[in-house]
Design a protein around this nucleic acid. Structure first.
Length: 835
RNA sequence: GCCCCCGUGGUGGAAUUGGUAGACGCGCUCGACUCAAAAUCGAGUUCCGCAAGGAGUGCCGGUUCGACUCCGGCCGGGGGCACCA
């Protein structure tokens, strides 16, 4: 038996065997309990990075652990294969996006396989495959038929050089991130999904997701942004021809503090005014200039232009000026507000600038009723003042009162508004799922008949000229209208790639050829028991997937409420950064061999721009998959960042060899030479405590703690004398470590002469009798300070413990002759003597 | 600006419901083996102190027999949203 574990040889051998035997295929048959373990599928960008390795190692440990615990485990892998980088590569390197993507997938699949992940590769899918996106088109049409898809004009970020729509994230300081051109706002007809129809259930559903991080639930809650308030109207002057203005407020109680009404520059009321006056039109144009970056908005000046007058709904003799104001958003609430400068900071800034009245209508105490408002609006609690029939009411009561009156008198109503907007899914790009619609001059937009799906992307495309290649393709879009047969044109937009990732976990669970999924089969696996991925998807992907699942439920396709029962967001992999004296980023290797001075920078997320990435593949070459896996689990709590270090991976390598030595030693000794030396009960207890601890920690995804448990057990075993207990314990150690270091575990398992694969072996059971301590150490405190410890049998009587504690010499000394006033005894834990 | 999270040795981090702070790893120190080195093994490693003992979980205060843990106020770091009415 080899003195060293040789991963270079062993890893590949076991990986081949697992693959040949289909060890990790999810059966879906029989009545074993099922577990669906899923990590967010990767974008095939080229090569696996350390973040992937960490993410997939965590999921793999859980999947292997569940399998050893008797579960039928579904642990699949696929590729989020549509998206911009492929088109960029096409433009820069003159390769077809499909070719580039598929070649990346091949590379990355090979890299993943070398890490020995227990994946069911038979279910592998790529979203760029017509077999996948064709079914997505069918689902899109299902939602369309159900009225959950619609088309409307919408403003987009338009890059006039690249001739493409940009996502908000791709607009940097008002310019296209690739072209650097000033981005324009254009109105285009776009497809939308009615996610706002589900706002209430998406919000309420968060309450049930108790296996999600609070942080993510909170982020989604804020994103959905439910606000209760009142919508009401300000009537225009009887002489005006224009209609009344609807406003929304969350503070109807402050209605007597109103000093102006403001509408968005995009509001119809503003447009009307612009029609009448070039000055107004010019002002609106000015409002639309300027960037949308955080910094610019922060410092942006409040701009307003008075364009009319309206009547206060509770006092026909009270007129208020109407302004167009640049800080009012058209797509929130009604696009118009009433300004209450006393109790809203923005309104106050505006009122000061334009010399409008500032009235206090809420005061924290009666004494402060006439206290003028200074530079800060008062937004705290209090009672109403200067508010006629509302005076003296609390803000909450006043809100109810005003809404009740508005509803009774018919000028307003209590309502709820949402921050969440419908999901625009049109993208003017080639490398995505074609939207299965045909535009006919006579019939309008018509769904592509089901038997004509999938609508497949053309292969012969040209990236030489900017813009959407689909739009430019000479023939692809030319079709006959499915309804009337007249010449028509295909929709040339493709779907947002977030649509692709909104249902891939369903397709993993069930993949018939003729349908997106089989309802019953998918329902047997779903929801995903444990989903693991980066926190950067906390809102978009996870919200869209929740919506898509609920939409399918509403149309009767799938009876699942929430797609992901458990969610875990793992931290990033970070690394030191280095710069030379000119500020140029250096790789760690360059930093070492650099002649000049090198500045050690901060520890940051691995990124190409900071040049601090570490490619996993050479590390696997050098140390083997298990050492890499072990390191990914060991150093930091999984939800926090992990700093990559050479010392860390070396430590992991040493540990892998330590386990190997224990196994090799036992294997060599054989199973007969030492029999009869008797059991080592103390060792048995430690082993069973480790069984319980490692299991509990893996279930809690506290991998770093499970790792610590294994280190501790290993050290104990190294020091333990030979005995049947020790031999059993080494076997147990191998089983416990198997989910984390599977290749080593298989090798040791087979060397020790055990049958079958350890991947399919049983997880050891902790014997409850051995988990109970016989003796415990009792802490003895005097006035809360530790003075002594004493050994006592478990379950010793309080009186006995008290007596023992009072007899302690150290206690007597600490008491300095004072008599104990009180003695607190916590059984099996401590005695505290208060003097 | 609003919301949320986190501050523990040289370092990553442990510490069921408040009950012996620093498990386990990394690093470091000393020792063994070696001509030597690597690898490996053993001992030690919160701080002050020879010791007895004292101090100690960002800072200040509070609750409690007892606080890393609970409460209030600061300071520092990170994240999310952002003119959301």
């Amino acid at each position: 038996m080899a003195a060293r574990f040789n991963p270079l040889e062993a890893d590949a051998r076991w990986q081949k065997l697992w693959e040949e035997q289909g060890t990790f295929h999810a059966s879906g048959e029989g009545d074993r309990p099922r577990a669906y373990v899923l990590e967010m599928f990767p974008y095939p960008s080229g090569r696996i990075h350390m973040g992937h390795v960490r993410n997939y190692t965590m999921g793999d440990v859980l999947a292997r652990y569940r399998r050893m615990n008797g579960f039928d485990v579904l642990h699949p892998m696929g590729w989020d294969a549509f998206g911009m980088p492929a088109e960029n590569a096409a433009m820069e390197k003159k390769v077809h996006p499909g070719e580039w993507t598929r070649s990346n997938i091949d590379t990355m699949r090979g890299q993943l396989k070398r890490l020995g992940f227990a994946l069911d590769w038979s279910r592998e899918l790529a979203t760029c495959d017509p077999d996948y996106y064709g079914h997505e088109q069918a689902l899109f049409l299902d939602l369309h038929e159900a009225g959950l898809v619609y088309r409307k004009q919408s403003e987009v970020n338009w890059d006039p050089v690249d001739m493409t729509v940009l996502a908000n994230e791709q607009v940097i300081d008002g310019r296209g991130w690739r072209s650097g051109a000033l981005v324009e706002r254009r109105k285009l007809s776009q497809w939308f999904l009615r996610i706002t129809d589900f706002a209430d259930e998406l919000l309420d559903g968060l309450g049930e997701l108790d296996q999600w991080p609070d942080k993510v639930r909170l982020m989604q809650e804020n994103w959905i942004g439910k606000s209760r308030g009142m919508k009401f109207r300000f009537d225009t002057m009887p002489s005006d021809e224009t209609e009344s203005i609807q406003v929304f407020t969350t503070r109807p109680d402050t209605i007597f503090g109103a000093s102006f009404v403001a509408v968005s520059p995009d509001h119809p009321f503003a447009a009307e005014a612009a029609n009448r006056s070039p000055a107004v039109a010019e002002f609106i144009a000015r409002c639309k200039q300027g960037g949308t970056t955080a910094a610019e908005l922060e410092t942006a000046e409040k701009l307003g232009l008075e364009i009319g007058e309206v009547l206060h709904p509770l006092d026909g003799g009270w007129t208020l000026p109407v302004y167009i104001a640049n800080f009012v958003l058209m797509d929130y609430g009604t696009g118009a507000i009433f300004g209450c400068p006393g109790h809203d900071q923005r309104d106050l800034d505006f009122a000061r600038k334009y010399g409008l009245e500032v009235t206090r209508v809420v005061a924290p105490s009666p004494e402060e009723a006439e206290e003028p408002i200074g530079d800060e609006a008062y937004t705290g609690p209090g009672r109403l003042v200067n508010s006629r029939f509302l005076d003296g009411l609390t803000a909450e009561d006043a809100i109810r009162e005003v809404i009740a009156r508005a509803e009774a008198e018919g000028w307003g109503e209590g309502t709820t508004v949402w921050r969440l907007r419908d999901w625009g899914v049109s993208r003017q790009r080639y490398w995505g799922t074609p939207i299965p619609i045909v535009h006919c001059g006579a019939c309008g937009p018509v769904a592509v008949p089901r038997d004509q799906l999938p609508v497949v992307l053309p292969e012969d495309i040209d990236f030489e000229t900017p813009g959407n290649p689909l739009d430019r393709h000479p023939t692809w879009s030319e079709v006959d209208c499915p309804d009337c047969g007249a010449p028509a044109r295909r929709e040339t937009d493709t779907l947002d790639t977030f649509v692709d990732s909104s249902w891939y976990f369903i397709r993993f669970a069930s993949q018939p050829a003729d349908a997106p999924f089989d309802k019953a089969e998918a329902e047997r696996w779903l929801p995903v028991d444990q989903y693991i991925g980066g926190v950067e998807h906390a809102i978009l992907h996870l919200l869209y997937a929740r919506f898509w699942t609920r939409a399918l439920r509403r149309i009767g396709k799938l009876d699942v409420e929430e797609p992901f029962e458990g969610l875990f967001t793992q931290g990033m992999v970070t690394h030191l950064t280095f710069q030379d004296s000119d500020g140029k980023w250096l790789t760690p290797d360059e930093a070492e061999s650099h002649g000049g001075p090198v500045i050690r920078g901060r520890v940051e997320k691995m990124s190409k721009s900071k040049r601090n990435t570490v490619d996993p593949e050479p590390i696997v070459d050098q140390y083997g998959a298990d050492a890499v896996r072990w390191f990914m689990l060991s150093d930091s709590p999984p939800e926090r960042d992990l700093e990559w270090s050479e010392a860390g991976i070396q430590g992991s390598w040493r540990f892998v060899q330590r386990i190997w030595r224990l196994a090799a030693e036992e294997a060599e000794r054989g199973s007969s030479t030492w029999l009869g030396e008797g059991d080592d009960l103390a060792l048995d207890r430690k082993v069973h405590r480790a069984i319980a601890a490692v299991g509990a920690n893996i279930e809690a995804l506290a991998f770093n703690k499970a790792v610590a448990n294994l280190y501790e057990l290993t050290s104990t075993l190294e020091k333990a004398p030979a005995s049947p207990s020790r031999s059993r314990a080494v076997e147990t150690l191998i089983r416990l470590a198997a989910p984390m270091v599977p290749h080593l575990a298989e090798e040791a398992w087979s060397a020790m002469g055990r049958d079958g694969l350890i991947a399919q072996a049983e997880w050891p059971a902790a014997d409850p009798a051995l988990l109970v301590e016989e003796d415990v150490t009792i802490a003895v405190q005097v006035n809360g300070k530790l003075r002594d410890t004493l050994a006592a049998p478990k379950g010793a009587a309080k009186e006995a413990l008290e007596e023992m504690a009072l007899a302690s010499e150290k206690v007597i000394r600490a008491l300095e002759g004072k008599a104990p006033r009180k003695v607190i005894v916590v059984p099996d834990r401590l005695v505290n003597i208060v003097a």
